[in-house]
């Protein structure tokens, strides 16, 4: 038996031993795609179909209406405040949790995760209990002429709560995976804390940071339940884009509702494209780690 035949047989054996027969492959692929089609692709297609059901002119009118623009502005302002703040929190929390050992770490991580599992209804409600007119700080705020609930600050705070875990959860496993050797080396060579962070740590995690920011931003723009409780629904003033969708829908203006919804869906799709770009950059970059997909695994291993 010549060596080349041996290699070929080996390759064939390898292929057959680690893949399934073609019909199984196509079957599994078909089932997976059918599942995604039923639960994902058809509903999203419906959004776009309904958005353009009454023609492009209606669509443009719906998204160009002053109240839609005001809602868009509020949504962007909210995201512009929430994302940087949660980014700073995510970096701080990840540094403390990933680079140091201390007791109670699991409880702390659970606490960071909590907003993710708390019902949005509850997250909105607790801020009303805190800052509402009859809430804990209500009378004090009122006496000082400060408005939180039913105004922009309330919407920002509720959104902050809901999106709190996102950057931190991306960064903790990533920083953990990198270990502390590089930073320790930098410090022993005389680098200061901030210097170490900006020169050593940040370059290592930059794609994770970007990915967390993208996710956080998507969530911040799309939050509905919690914001709905604290917004007061004042048209053109405290309506965010997702709330505006609900209002239009309640006005029997479903074409316009789906038009604005399609805008949000498009925003989500852009986010996902950005995420993919980040991932491929991360894979090709020198310091890049497996951006999104590798992290949880790394966390499992450490």
């Amino acid at each position: 038996m010549s060596s080349s035949t041996a290699v070929r047989t080996l390759a064939a054996a390898r292929a057959s031993s680690t893949t399934e027969p073609a019909f199984v492959r196509f079957g599994l692929l078909g089932v997976a795609l059918a599942f995604l089609g039923l639960f994902l692709i058809v509903p999203v297609a419906v959004v776009f179909e309904q958005a353009f059901a009454k023609g492009g002119a209606t669509y443009l009118a719906a998204v160009g209406e002053p109240e839609a623009l005001a809602a868009l502005r509020l949504t962007l302002i909210t995201a512009a405040i929430v994302v940087p703040v949660n980014l700073v929190f995510g970096l701080a929390a990840a540094w403390a949790i990933a680079k140091f050992e201390f007791t109670g770490k699991s409880a702390l991580i659970t606490l960071i995760d909590l907003p993710f599992a708390v019902s949005p209804v509850i997250s909105g409600m607790v801020f009303v209990l805190l800052f509402g007119a009859r809430g804990l700080f209500g009378p004090w705020l009122d006496a000082h002429g400060l408005k939180i609930i039913f105004a922009t600050p309330g919407i920002v705070i509720a959104t902050m709560f809901v999106t709190l875990p996102l950057v931190a959860r991306e960064l903790i496993p990533l920083m953990h995976a990198h270990g502390t050797e590089e930073e320790e080396a930098a410090v022993s060579l005389g680098a200061g804390g901030w210097q170490t962070f900006f020169r050593v740590t940040l370059p290592n995690i930059k794609w994770g940071v970007l990915y967390g920011v993208i996710l956080c931003n998507a969530r911040a723009m799309g939050e509905f339940g919690a914001v709905s409780v604290v917004s007061g629904h004042i048209r053109g003033v405290t309506n965010t884009l997702p709330l505006h969708v609900e209002i239009l829908y309640n006005e029997y203006n479903s074409a316009a509702a789906f038009a604005v919804a399609s805008l949000l869906a498009a925003l989500a799709l852009v986010t996902l494209v950005a995420k993919r770009l980040v991932e491929s950059k991360a894979h090709s970059g020198r310091n890049g780690l497996t951006a999104s997909t590798g992290e949880r695994k790394e966390q499992d291993e450490h």
Binding site: F131, R134, G135, K147, I149, F150, H233, I234, R235, N250
Partner: peptide, 20 residues
């Protein structure tokens, strides 16, 4: 005149909670 609409009970609650 700004408008806010929603379920009647929900709206009353919002006013009680400080929607001015």
């Amino acid at each position: 005149i700004n408008q806010s609409h929603g379920g009647s009970g929900k709206q009353a609650r919002a006013v009680i909670d400080g929607l001015e």
